[in-house]
Design a protein around this nucleic acid. Structure first.
Lengths: 231, 231
DNA sequence: CTAAATGACTGACCTGAGTCAGTCATTATT
DNA sequence: AATAATGACTGACTCAGGTCAGTCATTTAG
């Protein structure tokens, strides 16, 4: 594990996480107590479902997936996460175990922030507390959206959703990188890997995407949105 | 609409909502400004998806369902709610429109609390703010649980989940009341009404439940849990 | 009192989507 | 260089679960 990339002084990098914008220097210092950075390699588990939620986890650099380990070893990917996503907040609030795992998809630098310190800052800074509440609310709403998508759309709609999400929100590009496997797509869309491959191939046949190995290029974003809307 | 049941003085009834326990009398008074109670009849919409989230909604008496109006008029019931459930918080925080509707299943008394007043109290009372955050986190976690249940369990498991939820969490009784229709069960379990009926009938055949009209009596809660766990 | 509407229920049918077995190409191992 | 392992891909088969058409019992409306 390399150390040269680790954040020793966190005051700077904290300021880049929009949520931390409202914190005073003193409050940032408090968060930095017991804070530590760790570099994870591809495939390594950053946060494991079932462990005690003692830390807030912040992605500083890299790329990871957040997933629930469900029934019979089936995973459900909740989100692909990049800087400056925070994780573990909701579980930390209720003093429970983490309800999901996080795994690095690329080399990923992560900061662990002590939950007790977070709570102190939440109690002392009402603006920060309001922002944090907004962040939790957005998580909730995103979960509701996925609930509807997964329960009411069929395969084509769900894959279209995934393509839109990945290209527009995650990659900000027509090209979805090769770090996303077919298996990942199937776990994000709640379907079997074979079915995901099949649908992607149909999209390629219909000139909606083009496939270069793992890399996926969105050719017709309009059609993608149509399919996603219709279900 | 009857008025004799309406809460004119809310200080008392506020104290029964566990979330409000940490509020001072002054803060309660602030919440009670612009607060109003309304009695809804069965089938009436208490809160409509898409309207501005200006109020926090609190169920004071009665029984309602919280549901998302999804694609092609298909609904997804998120929750059956009874006193003292709060709703509309997450949407209110992000100053957006409500992401779900709420409909009275029985005659239901509801309090509307002004969102701006709520925010003032959140800012002034950090203990309340922490409690509110916990409430939002629990909502989020419940949504994650449903996400896994709906995407990874098949019909029998999902209906078993619904029976357990209704009898253990909502009715606190082996008997699920006749205000829950088959359609409601199908919208809670994300399946067609016909399939829900079919599964319930199989459960009856297998002595797991007994059906008396709309009323459902849980006979073998152990078997129900087995089915729910296996998926 | 009759007619229409509603909701539980059932059987027949059909299709969306998972499973399985296997090919091919690429990468890792010895 | 040969072998094993991995992951994308495909076709054939199966089945869970949705749709449809219709019955029956119970309410509601005229």
């Amino acid at each position: 594990m390399k150390t040269d990339k680790l954040c020793i002084r966190c005051e700077n990098c904290n300021k880049r996480s929009p949520l931390f914008a409202s914190l005073t220097d003193d409050e940032l210092k408090l968060l930095n107590d017991d804070r530590h950075s760790v570099l994870f390699h591809e495939g390594e588990v950053i946060l494991k479902q079932g462990t005690r939620a003692d830390y807030l986890v912040s992605i500083v650099e890299g790329f990871a997936k957040m997933y629930i380990e469900g029934i019979q070893n089936r995973n459900l990917i909740l989100d692909f996460v990049k800087p400056w996503k925070l994780m573990g907040g909701p579980s930390g609030m209720v003093k429970e175990k983490h309800r999901y795992s996080v795994m690095a998809i690329q080399e990923t630098l992560v900061c662990f922030i002590d939950m007790d310190n977070l709570k102190k800052v939440l109690a002392s800074n009402s603006e920060f507390s309001a922002q944090f509440l907004i962040y939790c609310s957005r998580n909730y709403q995103a979960a509701l959206d996925r609930l509807v998508g997964i329960s009411q759309k069929q395969m084509h709609g769900r894959v279209a959703d995934a393509m839109i999400y990945l290209s527009e929100d995650i990659y900000n590009s027509q090209t979805i990188g090769e770090e996303i496997s077919r298996q990942d797509i199937s776990e994000y869309t709640a379907m079997s890997k074979d079915s995901a491959i099949r649908v992607l191939k149909e999209f390629e046949r219909d000139q909606i995407v083009s496939l270069h190995g793992r890399q996926i290029e969105v050719l017709d974003s309009g059609k993608l949105h149509d399919i996603a809307d219709k279900g």
